[in-house]
Design a binder for these strands. Structure first.
Lengths: 212, 212, 212, 212
DNA sequence: TATGAATGAGTGTTCATTCAT
DNA sequence: TATGAATGAACACTCATTCAT
C-alpha cells in the first residue's frame, strides 16, 4: 500500500487519479474519442494499472457515472425545489448562483452525460437505464409537490426539459459562448439567471400553485 | 458490382447515399464512434468511394454540417419569432407542432451538432466557429425586436438557453424518454409544448413587451 | 486483383501465403505460442491483411483445419484399408512408404491437430467436434469390413490408437528422435515401418479375418 | 490474509499447491495458453508468491517435469517388460489395467509432455534433451532383452511408437473419445487393452523371442 | 466512377514479472 | 512467507486511408 497518510500535495491514490484523469479526458474528447493512453499519462500511471482497477474503458465510464451522477442529483433536488425561489427574486438569484457554482465544478461529468445521452438508441440504452433510475429519484421530490395526478407527468417533463437541460447546457456551453460572442462571465451568468428565473421558475410556480 | 444503369427514381446517387448514411451513423455513435466501414455498408458503396467524393471522415462531417445547419436555423428564425405566438395559445401550439415536426426530421443532424458542441475546447473550437456565425444570423431577428441595447444580449441568451436548447433536447431525448418512463408520444409532446409555452414564450413575451 | 497469371517464383496470392505461414508458425509454437505478427512477417503481408481475409487468429486456425484435415483423412482411408497390406510384406512396405511421404508433407498440420487435441476439455471441445465428424467418415471404411456389430467399436478403437496415432507420432517425432538418438532417417523409417506392420497390420488382419 | 497457522492436515503447503495448480492449468491450456494469474487463483495464493518459489513460468514447468517424468518412466519400465505379459492374456490384461490406472492419475503430466514434444524444433529442443535422457534409461531395460545388436534400435523404436505412444494417447484422448462417440469408459478401455495386446504385445513377443 | 486489396499507425487489453512492505 | 500495487513489453485486433486497376 502506498501513501499511508496521503501526502498533501495532490498525490492522491492511483485509483482516484485514474478516475479524475478519465473524467477530464472523456469530457474533452467524448468517450469514443478518448484514448486510454492519454488517461494513463495524465493520471501519471502505467496504462496497465487502469485495467488493474477498472476492467475496461467502458467500466471506467460506468464507475465515473455511478457515484457522481447520483451526487449531482442529490444536490439538485432540494435546491431546485426550495420554495423560497418563488418568494422573492433575491432569494431565487442566490439559490441559482449556488447551484451554478456547484454544477460548474462538475461540468466534465455533465458533458459526458449529455454527450452519451444523445447517441441514438440502442447504442445509448445502457447508459439511459442508469439515468432513468436516478431521474426517478429526483422526480420523487417533484411528485410530492403535485396534488393532481394528471399534472405529475407534465411536472416531470417541465423539470427536465425547461429546468435541468438549460441548466446543464449553460454549464457546458458558457465558456464557448463567452468566446464566440465576447461576453464576460459575470454578465453572461446574470443574463442566464434572469432568463432562467423568468422562464422556468415562473412556469413551475404556476404549475405548483394550481396543485396546492 | 453495383447498379450499372442506375435507376433514376428511388436509388439516390452514390454521393448522396454516402452523406445520408454518414448522417445516421454519426447520430448513432457520435463522430468518433462512427466507422467509415459502416457508413460504406449502409450506403451500399465501396469504402474507397467515400474518399473519392469526400476526402476524409472529417470533411464528410463538414459537408453534412455545411448546408444543413444553415437550413435549420433559416427555418427556426421566422418560426420562433412569429408574433402570433403571443396572441393566443392555439396559434402558439400550432406553430410549436410544425416546428417540432420539422426538427424531428432533422434530429440526426441535431444530435451530431449537440454532441460535438459539448466536447471541451480546444478540441471543439473548429465546430463552434461555424456555429457562432450561424447563431449570429439567427439573432439578427431577435435583435430587431429589441429596442433597448442593454436587453439585446439577454434576449440572445434567453433565446438560446431557454429556447433553442430545450427544443433541441426534446427532439433528441424524446425517444429515450418514452422508453424510460413508458409515455406515449402524443402525451409527451403535449406536455412538452405546454411547458415550453409556459416557460419560454411567457418569458420572451415579457422581454419583448418591455422593449416595444 | 494481384497476380493475374501467378508468377512462377513462389509469389502466391496473399490469402494463401497467410494460410501457409500460419500453418508453419502454429506448428512451431502451438496455437497460443504463435504470434500474428510473425505470421504476417513470414507471409510478407501487412498484419491487417490477415484480418481482412480471416477474421481472427482462431478463425485462421479453423480455416487451416477445414480443408486440410479432410484431405488427409481422404487419403488415409483407402491407403490404410488397401487389402494388399495383408498379402505380402513388400506391398505393405510400399504402401507404408507412400503413406509416410504423404503425411510428412503435412506434418505441420498433424502437429497442430495433435497439440490442440491434447488440451483438456472443455478448452478442447470446439476442435474435437470437427475431428469427430471427420473420423466418423474415416471409420465408415473400417465399418464396411466388419461383419459382427460387436467388433465395430473395437475396430475403430484399434484403427485410431494403434494405427493413426503411431503414424502421426512418427511423422511428428521422427526428426527429434533422429537428433536425440543419432539415427539416420532411412534406418529409423525402416524400423518404424517394420514395427508398425508387425503390430498394427498383424492385429487388424486378425480382426478383419474373424469378420469375413 | 491466508492461514497464519497452517493446519497440518489437508491444506498443502503453498509451494505444492502452486505446483499442483500449474500442472492442471498447463494440461488444460498448454504452456503458452496457461496464465500465471489462473494458477495463482487456483492455488489460492498471491501471484507474486509463485515468483518467490519458482523464478519464472518456465522454471515452474521445469519443476513439474523434473521429478514426475522420471517417476512415470520408472514405473513404466518394469511394468512394460514384465515377461508375464506373454504368458497368458489374463496376466497381460491385469498388468495393462494397473498401468492405465497409474497413467491416468498422471494424465495432466502426459498432456503437457506430449504437447510440448510436438512443437517443431528448435523451439522444442530444450524439452527433448530432458526426454532423451529419460528414454535412454527406460530403454536400458529393453536393451537387456535383446541379444542381437542389429535389433536393438528396432526394439527401441517399437517400444516408443507402438508402445508408449498409443498408451499415452489413450490416457490423453479417452475422455474426448467417450464424449465424441458416446462410448462408456469400461467398454472403451476393454477395447483398447485388447487392441494394444494384439498389436504391441504380439509384435514385441515376436521380436524378443527371436532374440532369446 | 467504382472496387478489392493493402497498409501504417494506432487501440484497448493482456501478461509475465517486479516492487515495496 | 506473503501480498496488493505497479509496470514494460507485448498482444490480438481496428481503423482511416491509399493503391492499382
Amino acid at each position: 500500500m502506498v501513501n499511508h497518510e496521503a501526502p498533501e500535495g495532490g498525490v492522491a491514490a492511483a485509483k482516484e487519479r485514474i478516475r479524475d484523469a478519465a473524467l477530464r479526458v472523456f469530457a474533452e474528447r467524448g468517450f469514443d474519442g478518448a484514448r486510454v493512453d492519454e488517461i494513463a499519462k495524465r493520471a501519471g500511471v502505467n496504462k496497465a494499472l487502469i485495467y488493474y482497477y477498472y476492467e475496461s474503458k467502458e467500466k471506467l465510464l460506468d464507475a465515473i457515472f455511478q457515484g457522481s451522477v447520483e451526487e449531482v442529483l442529490a444536490e439538485l433536488g432540494p435546491e431546485l425545489h426550495d420554495t423560497r425561489i418563488f418568494e422573492d427574486e433575491a432569494a431565487a438569484v442566490a439559490i441559482m448562483e449556488r447551484l451554478l457554482d456547484f454544477l460548474e465544478q462538475r461540468q466534465d461529468l455533465l458533458r459526458i452525460f449529455l454527450m452519451e445521452s444523445m447517441k441514438r438508441s440502442p447504442v445509448n440504452d445502457r447508459i439511459f437505464i442508469l439515468i432513468a433510475a436516478l431521474l426517478d429519484r429526483l422526480f420523487s421530490l417533484v411528485d410530492s409537490q403535485i396534488a393532481r395526478p394528471e399534472d405529475m407527468e407534465r411536472a416531470r417533463v417541465m423539470e427536465f426539459f425547461t429546468g435541468l437541460i438549460p441548466l446543464f447546457s449553460y454549464v457546458v456551453h458558457h465558456e464557448i459562448w463567452m468566446k464566440a460572442f465576447g461576453m464576460d462571465e459575470a454578465r453572461l451568468r446574470a443574463d442566464f439567471v434572469r432568463s432562467f428565473i423568468d422562464a422556468h421558475f415562473t412556469a413551475t410556480e404556476m404549475l405548483y400553485k394550481t396543485n396546492k
